[in-house]
Design a protein around this nucleic acid. Structure first.
Lengths: 169, 169
DNA sequence: GCGGAATAGTCAAGCGCTCAACTACGCTAC
DNA sequence: GTAGCGTAGTTGAGCGCTTGACTATTCCGC
């Protein structure tokens, strides 16, 4: 995941044409710090939410998306897109949420191919119970560590990258 | 994963004492941008490396760590720490890398309990083949998108969070 | 209205991760 | 020396994700 390994015998300055654009020492440092910090933060939030509530963050995200919709329901595909999830993954996940009684599938009137994922009252209650845990984690491990300027920089970075990685958003 | 769901009936300003410190609109925006961008970036790099070389980033990271050591070998536990990996996870991963002939386990002279993971020549060759793909991905999807100021901010953010999440580093 | 492409969603196989239990060795103190 | 504890590493069960193939429905052009 780290990025090093300029092939042995090669320094920082590379084949002027066609060669790999290796990272210099500063870029290495920035990349590793970013990589490790995001990974540690996600691991931490995942673990804390899981321990406290038994809900993985991937499921939490599904519940959140459904809860933010006026009727607490959404087409499977749109839900997948919003959760940055593949159709298949979402389908599996919704099946498991259905087993917990937190979501149910409902046929879609306008489109015979489609299904709606509907958040149940039990699902909403589970979300309400989990939200404080998750938010407190984000607060403690992220915002409490940063100055307002750093928060601003984080937003700017995230939005810049989003424009490249997912222009539709 | 997103963080919303202030319980219905509650606004942004909360129970002054003991209540959850919900995120305000600005924080929401920053958090979601960060969360989605890191997720999309990781997915993208993972997918590109996997398609081009058949190596998952988790294995790539193991190969990199071993390659950066003078003798291309490292104690299992240290390798796990450096890869932000559990012992168990690393043990499984090394077994699979052994099947590919890229790593082998070797008994440790100084400590009868310990094992060394040793990078083989085949493993090093696989790494050399994969590195340009990975570096080019990081270049294209990250550094090419950012100004020098943003790169600096990224490093600063990452290092600030690392100090909190993993003080030993 | 019919044939073909596109879209919505599911499912099974295979891989990788987590958790908890387990083996084996080392360290310290008596 | 041996009891007890801590450390190193492995293992197996179970879960979740990915991929690719599959069914069903809709859309489009003629």
């Amino acid at each position: 995941m780290t990025t090093q390994v300029s092939p042995p015998g090669e320094g920082d300055v590379e084949h002027p044409a066609g060669g790999t654009r290796w990272l210099d020492a500063e870029e290495q440092r920035a990349w590793r710090a970013w990589l490790y910090s995001t990974q540690l933060l996600n691991d931490r939030l995942e673990r804390e939410l899981m321990r406290a509530t038994g809900i993985p963050t991937a499921y939490y995200e599904i519940l959140v998306q459904l809860s933010e919709t006026p009727s607490r329901q959404m087409r499977m595909s749109e839900l997948a897109d919003r959760c940055l999830s593949s159709r298949s993954r979402l389908s599996h996940a919704v099946s498991r949420l259905e087993e917990r009684g937190w979501v149910r599938r409902q046929e879609c009137a306008e489109d015979g191919r489609g299904l709606l994922a509907v958040l149940t009252d039990e699902g909403f209650a589970a979300l309400e119970a989990a939200a404080p845990v998750h938010v407190e984690g984000v607060r403690t491990h992220l915002f409490d560590q940063l100055t307002p300027e750093q928060v601003e920089a984080m937003r700017d970075l995230g939005e810049t990258l989003l424009r490249h990685l997912d222009p539709s958003r």
